[in-house]
Design a protein around this nucleic acid. Structure first.
Lengths: 189, 189
DNA sequence: GAAAACACTTGATCTATGTTAAGAGTTTCG
DNA sequence: CGAAACTCTTAACATAGATCAAGTGTTTTC
């Protein structure tokens, strides 16, 4: 099994033995995706979940007024996709785009369902990931009530290296300010 | 089984027969909670999930700068609690407070685990609810990028009767503006 | 049933961020 | 390799919403 995924599962559910995790690998497929390509486009059904081996992605939503709003960045050792769309086979409302050339371990709906049925360990692992993703989104809702400077500092504390990997334009969209405002804000502080 | 919960399950997973749903009721307990009381306080572990029979609740988070930020309102036929805290027995980061006297069907961690193990139907039902709750939070992230008037109109479209049940102060907190700003905004439009 | 606490409105003023525009530097691509 | 397309910065000006303050009406509480 690819050691990154193995370690990630083990870290999240340490009470399972290595043997339980072992054969999970067979359900995944290795794939590459190039910078700027889309992993998921709104309106389409999410047919794969994917674990990010390296590279990074942005999730974004087109707002009512037509703006692209970045809601999340995903780096190594995180999952991308839209679990609701994936499981229920409904059109997704989010876009997931690679911001760097990336390597993924993907899993199809079919293999996911099979794993969920056979592996208590995978069940628990995905349940944790879902809680954690949901909580992140909810906590971001309250972060957005802070002014831009506070939010910017909080983001840097959480991801100290983010500016080396994500363009200012995309960080600004995440903070829900204009690139101009971010530029000014960085100069001041 | 209380018909409201029954109907809600049936509506979400119509492909299961009535018999599958029938005995789910035994795992729940009826409870009342009064206006202003807390269902969940941040820092404590969420020991019950609950289906709202009637009444309403607000979820809120204390922001870094000490403001209460409402992240969600929950009415009849919705679930309250913090699934991450509930399942992993970790301290919650959110507060859930009743805004009206309310009636609930609660389920303990133990009964939840038992139901999850025995009922494929309950499994699928809760999976759907989780997707839906997560998606709502993510979509709200992009809504917050709109100006206050647009957001206010969107909210009224989604919950036309919200102003009869939720005070302006709490709606303002949800929209992440001050009560004064909301008051002005309503006069204009 | 009166006092206290709270909810909402309105006005004046202030400030953070948006908008528009222009220029310099960097990356992409045929 | 060079043109075109981006990215970031800076400045001037505009504006949505915050803050502070005061007044009225409503609800809660003892």
């Amino acid at each position: 099994m690819h050691s990154k995924l193995f370690k990630h599962i083990n870290k999240n559910i340490p009470h399972y033995s290595i043997l339980d995790i072992q054969n999970i690998q067979d359900y995944f497929e290795y794939k590459k995706i190039k910078k700027k390509e889309f992993f998921l486009i709104q309106g389409s059904v999410c047919s794969y979940g994917a674990f990010v081996l390296n590279g990074c992605f942005r999730n974004y939503i087109i707002s009512i007024e037509g703006k692209e709003v970045n809601t999340q960045f995903s780096f190594e050792n995180w999952w991308i996709g839209d679990i609701g769309s994936f499981v229920n086979r409904t059109p997704s409302k989010i876009n997931v785009q690679a911001l760097e050339n990336a390597e993924l371990l993907t899993i199809s709906t079919k293999n996911y369902a099979a794993l969920m049925e056979r592996s208590a360990c995978f069940n628990e692992y995905t349940s944790k990931l879902r809680s954690s993703a949901h909580l992140s989104a909810v906590l971001r809702l309250s972060d957005l009530s802070e002014n831009a400077i506070t939010q910017y500092k909080m983001m840097l504390e959480k991801f100290p290296k983010i500016e080396q990997r994500i363009s200012q334009k995309h960080i600004a969209s995440f903070l829900q300010i204009t690139p101009e405002a971010l530029s000014r804000l960085k100069k001041q502080n």
